[in-house]
Design a binder for these strands. Structure first.
Lengths: 187, 187
DNA sequence: CCGCCTCATGACATGACGTGTCATCACTAG
DNA sequence: CTAGTGATGACACGTCATGTCATGAGGCGG
């Protein structure tokens, strides 16, 4: 038994999500979150860089996962093929099954401009991971950037469609459709 | 002659850019900007929503310009064709000729995480304008979103390349090349 | 010429955010 | 037994951002 109740980070996150749901993001203060978790404001900032980060903590390891997937893929894999495979894996591992939670987060993010900015930053971080992966595979800077941004476009458009959908289409199926539509646009 | 020296907003912007160049963005406080402009802190926030907005004020009307271009384009125009034409116009009107200033801004943006976030928000605002333009033209939600995001990808990749280039290639020429490369990737 | 209105700014107060710093104290290694 | 480690508390501080009221020049109708 340690001196403090364990899982301080998890308690802070749970408290924050509760309060965001009750009062909205902007109306809940960091001291209120810390108080509900039985901790101090200072401790909150030791676990999260700022108030917004709480909402994105669950997906913190996605860029690292992307980097790993790209590094381990066979050197012969074609870029777009690699993206398709990678997105299937990421979708299955990190998104499928969290639909309700992700919908809730999407609604919160929509409600606050600061959160929208942070969301964009997270997407950009994923794009950066993809881009570096392609650079490491020897692609030139333009191709790497183009493929990375396109990859993120595919993900975000697909996830938006997935979260909006009432039926139970699988995310990877939607991803495939969206890619086909993009191909058609550019043909 | 009015009661106050005119151009408060412009003076604030000039003061801010000077101080950002001298001390960096983070080290510059709003009171310092206001003082250099001969105004008060409160007045700064009357002209700019926050410290970051100063850097992006010059491009505030781009989304409106995009909306106008899309609304005025002939109804028969194909989406991708429309994007290509529109980007040529926007590039010529808003970017070509500001290379030095835009390079400077890019360096500042790179130096600060908060500014990177704001930059992404501005891109997203442009994407949103394009998306709404396509929705107004009757495209379905997925196509509109896909085309809008792709449009922004083309712009940002091209501008990055343009600002990095040492030769004097024109931005619209780079745009065309980048689009061709994207087409090749997806073929 | 007068009085009223408008509106950009000044002046002041306030609260939240985020960080630096030091003390505390359970646990652990040696 | 002792020294070290590491998460937390306690406190101070500076900046950001906003609400509110006062001020006073210029414009306008009378």
């Amino acid at each position: 038994m340690s001196r403090w109740r364990p899982d301080a980070r998890e308690r802070l996150q749970a408290a924050a999500l509760d309060l965001f749901a009750e009062q909205g993001f902007a109306a809940t203060t960091v001291p209120a979150i810390a108080a509900r978790a039985g901790l101090t404001t200072r401790t909150f900032f030791r676990h999260f860089a700022d108030k917004r980060e709480v909402l994105f903590a669950d997906d913190a390891e996605v860029p690292a996962m992307v980097a790993k997937l790209m590094a381990e893929a066979p050197a012969t894999a074609e870029p777009m093929q690699l993206i398709v495979e990678g997105l299937r894996t990421v979708a299955a591992t990190r998104f499928e099954g969290r639909k309700a939670a992700l919908r809730h987060r999407r609604d919160l993010v929509r409600s606050d401009e600061g959160l929208r900015e942070r969301d964009l930053r997270k997407r950009a971080a994923m794009a950066e991971a993809v881009r570096e992966g392609f650079l490491a595979r020897g692609l030139d800077a333009t191709r790497a950037a183009l493929l990375a941004e396109t990859c993120v476009t595919l993900v975000s458009v697909s996830i938006a469609e997935w979260l909006d959908s009432v039926d139970d289409r699988r995310l990877d199926e939607i991803l495939r459709d969206v890619l086909e539509k993009l191909r058609a646009e550019l043909a």
